[in-house]
Amino acid sequence: MKNRREFLKIAGGATFLSIIGSGMAQAAQVKNVGVNLYSLREPMGLDPIGTLTQLAKIGYKVIESAPSAKGNYYGLTPKEIKQVMNDLGLILSSGHAIINANWQKSIDEAAEIGQEFLMAPMLPSKGQTVDNYKKVAETFNKMGEACKMSGVTFGFHNGVTEFEKENGQVLYDVLLDNTDAELVKMELDLGWAIVAGANPEHYFEKYAGRFPLWHIKDIKKDKNESIEFGKGKIDFVSLLKQQKKSNMKYMFVEQEHLTQPALATMRDNFNYLAKLKY
């Protein structure tokens, strides 16, 4: 998880949910599946265009980038990656970027691409205290305002530690309570939230409208590591039924821990979701 923390506008407004079936019996099926590129960090580092081409062939429609040693877009310029996405019929709707001295550059690049969301994958300062989370909230509000001025929506992607408590207060709640709901959105990593003992439905109800993005992953039954979908303990059906309540816009497959080549893993995960009905 430490490595992860360091390192979809769907055309026409299409939703992530497709209702199928007939008569009294109806089932929902996942459509327009997205993927976070941290799951493919090695192949993206070696051959970003080739890897994106393979993801498109698998059936992924929406992409979320992640930081790399070559920058936010794996050595490609905003113009170049935008063209690649257009050529492949993909949408780069979101991206993660490390909060540092180059943060304004990350905003400018996202705006140039037409990227809808820019996510911080870690806190800008350390300290598992209420005071630090209030300080972070102030920083996030400023970042949210800067992103808004460029036509980008700012947000934060959680791990496990944000759900720790100090003096009975859940630190993630402190962050939500002290950030502007219009300027700071949340990308809820469902897997790590559940590992931390949090109930996603509780957050969707208490903080309505704050969670337009999801990360979806499976977690091993005997260890807090991600695994191929369907092999772990996550109840995907129950989670997917909460899309409307969350007002979720884009959902991204993510798997940090790999047991086989990344593209094979992402193919297995895509096929699992494509067959899932709820």
Rank of each mutant, 00 (worst) to 15 (best):
W192F: 07
Y60L: 03
F154H: 06
A193F: 01
K206W: 13
S238H: 04
E162T: 03
L8Y: 15
V152A: 05
L40F: 01
D173P: 00
K126E: 14
T53K: 05
G127N: 06
K231M: 14
L188G: 07
P121S: 08
E80Q: 14
E164V: 11
D47W: 09
C147H: 10
W103S: 02
S150F: 13
A66E: 00
P67S: 08
L40S: 01
K2G: 11
L37M: 08
I19N: 15
N178G: 01
V152S: 09
G151Q: 02
M44N: 09
G23L: 12
K241H: 13
Y38H: 14
Y133V: 06
P212C: 11
V237T: 03
G75S: 00
H157V: 07
D177R: 15
D177W: 02
P124T: 06
K277M: 10
Y60Q: 05
V33S: 13
E225Q: 13
I20Y: 11
M119N: 02
M143E: 06
F229I: 09
L118K: 00
A198F: 04
N178Q: 03
G230A: 08
T179Q: 05
Q26K: 15
E42F: 12
R5A: 15
L175P: 00
I113Y: 09
Y250R: 01
L273G: 09
Q243P: 03
N158Y: 13
L175R: 06
G75N: 02
F211Q: 03
E201Q: 12
R4D: 14
I19F: 15
G12Y: 03
H257G: 02
M143W: 12
N167D: 05
Y172V: 00
T161R: 15
P48W: 09
S93L: 05
W214C: 02
E64Y: 03
K206S: 13
A69W: 07
Y250I: 08
I107G: 07
A66T: 06
N102G: 01
D173Y: 04
A56C: 05
A110Y: 11
K61H: 10
K165F: 12
H257A: 01
P43Y: 00
F270D: 10
N224M: 08
V35M: 11
F7E: 07
L88G: 09
E182L: 12
F229V: 06
K241R: 15
Q29H: 12
F163V: 06
W103Y: 06
Y272H: 10
V84I: 09
V84D: 00
V195E: 03
D87C: 10
G144L: 06
F236A: 07
P200E: 04
D108E: 07
T259R: 15
A28D: 14
F7G: 14
E201C: 05
P67K: 04
Y74M: 08
